Computed example of a mutant assay.
Amino acid sequence: MAEKTLAGKTVEVTGEGYLVNKEDWSKEIAAELAKEDGIDLTEKHYEVLDYLRKEQAAGTTLTIRKVGKSGITDIKGLYQLFPGGPLKLSSKYAGIPKPASCV
C-alpha cells in the first residue's frame, strides 16, 4: 500500500489508486482522483458515486448494467461520464473497492 496526499489529507491507496479505507472518502478526494485521470466531476458524476457507495454498503454486487438501470444515467451515459472503464473509474472515485468484474 502507498500513501498519497489528496485534498490536504494523507490517505492509503492500493497500487491501482483505490482508497484502502472507504472512510477516508470525501467529494474533494474524489475530485482530485478524477483530475488525475483528466475528468472534472459534475453533479451527475456525484449522483453515480453516491449510488455506488450506497449499493456497496448494502452488499450489492455492482455491475454496469445495474448502474444503467438505476435511473441516474443509462449505460451510454455512464461510458460518457467515465470513459475508458466506467465501473472501474467510478468505483475508484467513490472510494470503494474495485469490483470483481473489472479487470
Score class of each variant (00 low, 15 high):
residue 1 M to Q: 06
residue 1 M to C: 15
residue 2 A to E: 13
residue 2 A to I: 05
residue 2 A to Y: 11
residue 3 E to Q: 14
residue 4 K to V: 10
residue 5 T to L: 15
residue 6 L to F: 12
residue 6 L to V: 06
residue 7 A to D: 06
residue 7 A to E: 08
residue 8 G to I: 11
residue 8 G to A: 15
residue 8 G to C: 10
residue 10 T to R: 15
residue 10 T to Q: 14
residue 10 T to A: 12
residue 11 V to S: 02
residue 11 V to F: 11
residue 11 V to M: 10
residue 11 V to E: 00
residue 12 E to L: 15
residue 12 E to V: 13
residue 12 E to C: 10
residue 13 V to G: 05
residue 14 T to C: 12
residue 15 G to T: 08
residue 16 E to W: 10
residue 16 E to C: 09
residue 17 G to S: 08
residue 19 L to N: 01
residue 20 V to S: 04
residue 21 N to D: 14
residue 22 K to R: 15
residue 23 E to V: 14
residue 24 D to W: 09
residue 24 D to Y: 01
residue 25 W to I: 13
residue 26 S to N: 09
residue 26 S to C: 10
residue 27 K to V: 11
residue 27 K to R: 13
residue 27 K to M: 15
residue 28 E to G: 12
residue 29 I to R: 10
residue 31 A to F: 14
residue 32 E to S: 14
residue 33 L to V: 15
residue 33 L to W: 01
residue 34 A to Q: 10
residue 34 A to V: 14
residue 34 A to W: 06
residue 34 A to T: 05
residue 36 E to A: 10
residue 36 E to G: 07
residue 36 E to Y: 10
residue 37 D to R: 13
residue 37 D to W: 04
residue 37 D to M: 06
residue 37 D to N: 09
residue 38 G to R: 02
residue 40 D to H: 13
residue 40 D to F: 14
residue 41 L to E: 00
residue 41 L to C: 04
residue 42 T to Y: 09
residue 42 T to W: 09
residue 44 K to A: 12
residue 44 K to F: 11
residue 45 H to S: 11
residue 45 H to W: 08
residue 46 Y to L: 04
residue 46 Y to A: 06
residue 46 Y to P: 00
residue 47 E to L: 07
residue 47 E to T: 12
residue 47 E to D: 06
residue 48 V to T: 03
residue 48 V to H: 01
residue 53 R to F: 10
residue 54 K to P: 05
residue 55 E to A: 08
residue 56 Q to K: 12
residue 58 A to C: 10
residue 64 I to E: 00
residue 65 R to G: 14
residue 66 K to E: 04
residue 66 K to R: 13
residue 67 V to M: 06
residue 68 G to N: 00
residue 69 K to E: 09
residue 70 S to Q: 01
residue 72 I to P: 00
residue 73 T to A: 05
residue 74 D to V: 07
residue 74 D to H: 08
residue 75 I to R: 05
residue 75 I to M: 11
residue 76 K to N: 04
residue 76 K to Y: 07
residue 76 K to T: 03
residue 77 G to S: 05
residue 78 L to Q: 00
residue 78 L to P: 00
residue 83 P to V: 03
residue 83 P to K: 06
residue 83 P to F: 05
residue 84 G to M: 04
residue 85 G to D: 03
residue 85 G to T: 02
residue 86 P to A: 04
residue 86 P to K: 02
residue 86 P to V: 03
residue 87 L to H: 02
residue 88 K to I: 08
residue 91 S to K: 07
residue 91 S to W: 01
residue 93 Y to L: 07
residue 93 Y to D: 03
residue 95 G to W: 01
residue 95 G to N: 04
residue 95 G to D: 02
residue 96 I to S: 00
residue 96 I to A: 05
residue 97 P to N: 10
residue 100 A to W: 04
residue 103 V to I: 11
